[in-house]
Computed example of a mutant assay.
Amino acid sequence: MNKMRQWVRESIRIIEADFQRSADTHLIPLETPGLPGVELYFKDESSHPTGSLKHRLARSLFLYALCNGWLKPGAPVIEASSGSTAISEAYFARLLGLPFIAVVPASTAKEKLAQIAFYGGQSHLVDDPTQIYAESELLAKESGGHYLDQFTYAERATDWRANNNIAESIFHQLRFERFPVPSWLVSSPGTGGTLATLGRYVRYRQHTTRVLGADAERSVFFDSYVSGDRGLTLDCGSGIEGIGRPRVEVSFLPEVIDAMTKVPDALSLAAMHYLAERLGRRVGGSSGTNLIGALLAAERMVKQGEQGSVVAILCDGGERYATSYYDADWLRAHGYELQPLIAAVAACVERGQPLPPVAWDSGHRWE
């Protein structure tokens, strides 16, 4: 066996050994007295070693790149990211002794940049968030490294049939619950890879579960889903870090999504604060987006006399947003007045009052 094959073999062993040292993430119930007959759970991905859902993706991307022969000893690994994926990838790069460069928007929370540095990675800041892709490609070319490109490879690097992916884990953890087959799975798209895994898995396992994509306000995924136009673009980045994109990513697969909603940023942040209060710890903004998606699905179930479970993704913890989403001065400076919306979320969960109007599309072309 040549030296390159030996290095790849040892690198995969290191990653698999790390996986065996990690327990599965928790499934946390959240009582919803205002939505009778619906049992809501959060899949807590913040308990991964690197603190977010993206730990799963980073592991899959590294294994995919290794098995395809794209990584080389000592050669840099580059990624375009809004922070969380880069943190997880920096972790795996350090495991393998590889240099790591994260190409991130200049607006990325400083707590995320600090965590990238903690794992030995460098952050390359880009003022225009729409240019992180091109800058990553350029850095990879100039350095002789490899651009992991999560936005292209997320849906294909993950083993969506099994191998303890997030969907299989959810169904395994629900097996002794009152409603072991969930009516809805809810996730917000960043690459679109998690939605692809959820949608493919429920079809493969022949479940009746529906999949809901909860998009951010400044993002093209929802509009592309409604129109079928994959060429849509924006000239700005998302206001909710980690989700929403200014272009339709390759890993976004609308055919396996049963419905989508587009959640205003202010409502996402209000739901984030409400969820943090209910759980007794801070969560990220995308978890607020997912809570709104879950409540919209639950409202429809109640109206239709349907009982069942809804599972939403808790993507990351809120400690990464201490100086932004959880800072009163930051919220004020960005024009957010959240208290009325927090009250509206509480009224929905606790008393069954309707949420403020939110865009929803049921994807009639898939029915």
Rank of each mutant, 00 (worst) to 15 (best):
T130L: 00
G199Y: 05
E177H: 10
G83P: 13
S81G: 07
A140F: 01
P73I: 04
E79K: 03
L138A: 11
T108P: 11
I116Q: 07
A114S: 11
T158P: 05
R156Y: 00
A196R: 15
R210A: 05
L98R: 08
D127V: 12
L95C: 12
L138R: 13
R205D: 12
W184V: 13
W160M: 00
D128T: 07
A140V: 04
G74A: 13
V77T: 04
L185G: 12
S183G: 02
V104C: 11
F151H: 05
P105S: 12
A93D: 07
R161V: 11
G83R: 02
E137N: 07
R205V: 15
A117F: 14
A93W: 00
D159S: 11
Y153F: 10
Q173W: 03
E177I: 03
A162Q: 08
A134R: 11
T194V: 12
T197I: 14
R161F: 09
F100C: 12
T194R: 08
V103P: 02
D128C: 02
L148W: 03
G190F: 01
K110A: 15
Q131T: 08
K110P: 09
S82C: 01
K141G: 04
D127G: 06
G213E: 02
G199M: 03
S107I: 06
N165W: 14
F100W: 08
S82M: 06
A117E: 10
T208K: 15
S84C: 01
P129F: 15
P129A: 12
G145C: 14
F118S: 05
Q122I: 09
P189H: 01
G193T: 13
L98A: 09
D127E: 07
P189N: 05
Y147C: 13
G121D: 04
A75K: 01
A134H: 05
R156A: 00
K141H: 10
F176C: 00
T208N: 15
R156K: 02
G190T: 03
S136A: 11
L125K: 13
G120I: 06
A90Q: 09
S169F: 07
Q173E: 09
I78Q: 05
L96D: 12
V126M: 02
V77F: 10
E135C: 08
T191N: 00
R205L: 14
L174K: 03
T191W: 03
T208Q: 15
S84N: 14
E137G: 15
D127C: 05
N165D: 10
F118V: 09
A157I: 05
G83A: 02
W184Y: 15
F100E: 11
E135W: 00
E79A: 08
L148G: 02
S188Q: 01
T208W: 14
K141T: 08
S187L: 08
L98V: 09
V181F: 10
G193K: 09
G145A: 09
V103M: 06
F118T: 07
T130H: 01
T85H: 05
Q206R: 15
V104F: 04
N164A: 11
S82L: 04
Y147V: 11
T158G: 00
E168I: 06
